[in-house]
Amino acid sequence: MSALLLGLWLAAAQAAPADLDYIDAKRLADADEASVTGPAHAAMLAAQQSLLNAGVVDCALGRPQTDFTAFTIVMRLDAEGRVQQTWRQGSSPLAICLQRYVRDKTVFVPPKAPFYSALEISFTR
C-alpha cells in the first residue's frame, strides 16, 4: 500500500507546476531572474526583449490598439529555454495575443530547469 501512496505523491509532485497560480509563478520568476547576474543577465534581458519585439509585431502590426493597460506574462522554461507554460495578469487583446505567441517559443537557455521568467509590459506617455 505504501508504494501506491508514494506513486500518487510523485504524480502530484510532478503536476505541481501546472497548479501554480499567477502570483506564485510571478514570485518564482522574480527569484529566478534575480539569480542571473553579469553577462548572463544582459543576455537574458536581450532574449526577452527580442521575444517581446517579435510578439508585438506579430500581434499588433496593422491592428490598431486601443487598450494600453499594463500586463505581465510569466513563462516556465525547460532546460533548452522553450516555454512550457504561461500565466498572464491583464486581459487586453495584446496581452492575450502575446501569451499565445510566446507558447512553445525558445527564449534563452536558462541556468536551471524549470526556470521562470516574466515579460512585464507597461505603456507610459
Rank of each mutant, 00 (worst) to 15 (best):
V74I: 03
D104Q: 11
D78M: 01
A29M: 04
A42M: 06
A29K: 00
P110H: 02
R82I: 07
D67I: 06
D19K: 13
S122C: 03
A13R: 14
A34Q: 10
A12Y: 15
M75N: 05
L51I: 10
Q85A: 11
L8Y: 04
P93G: 12
W9V: 14
F115M: 03
R82V: 10
A13D: 14
A29L: 05
G90A: 03
Q49P: 05
V57M: 04
G81P: 12
A70S: 02
E80Q: 14
G90E: 02
G90V: 01
P17H: 11
F108Q: 09
P17Q: 04
D78Y: 00
V57E: 01
L94N: 05
D78E: 02
E120H: 15
T66P: 01
D30C: 08
L20Q: 14
L8V: 07
T69P: 03
D24L: 10
A47E: 06
L61V: 09
A54F: 01
T72G: 00
D30K: 14
K26R: 09
L6T: 05
D32T: 15
P39Q: 07
L51R: 02
I23G: 12
D24K: 10
D67P: 08
A11E: 09
Q65I: 04
A15K: 15
A118Y: 03
R82D: 03
D78Q: 00
S50A: 11
A34K: 11
R82S: 07
V74L: 04
T69S: 07
T124K: 05
A29S: 02
F108G: 13
S122D: 07
P64C: 07
A34I: 00
R125Y: 10
A47F: 01
D58E: 10
L119F: 11
T86V: 14
R125E: 13
V107R: 04
H41P: 06
Q99W: 00
S91K: 13
A31H: 09
A34N: 10
F68E: 06
N53Q: 06
P114G: 08
F68G: 13
W9D: 11
D30H: 04
P39Y: 10
Q14L: 15
R88H: 09
T69K: 12
T37Q: 14
L8T: 02
A15C: 06
N53S: 08
Q84H: 03
V36G: 10
D104P: 01
A113Q: 03
P93F: 15
F68A: 05
A113E: 05
H41Y: 15
L98Q: 07
F123V: 00
T86A: 07
Q84T: 13
T106G: 15
R125D: 14
A113L: 02
G81K: 04
K105T: 00
Y116Q: 12
P17F: 12
P93W: 13
S91I: 05
R103T: 06
R76K: 14
E80H: 15
T37F: 12
A47S: 11
P17T: 00
A42I: 09
A3T: 15
L119S: 06
L20I: 04
R100K: 09
A43I: 02
E33D: 05
D58K: 08
H41K: 14
D104G: 04
Q84K: 07
S91H: 12
D32R: 14
A34Y: 13
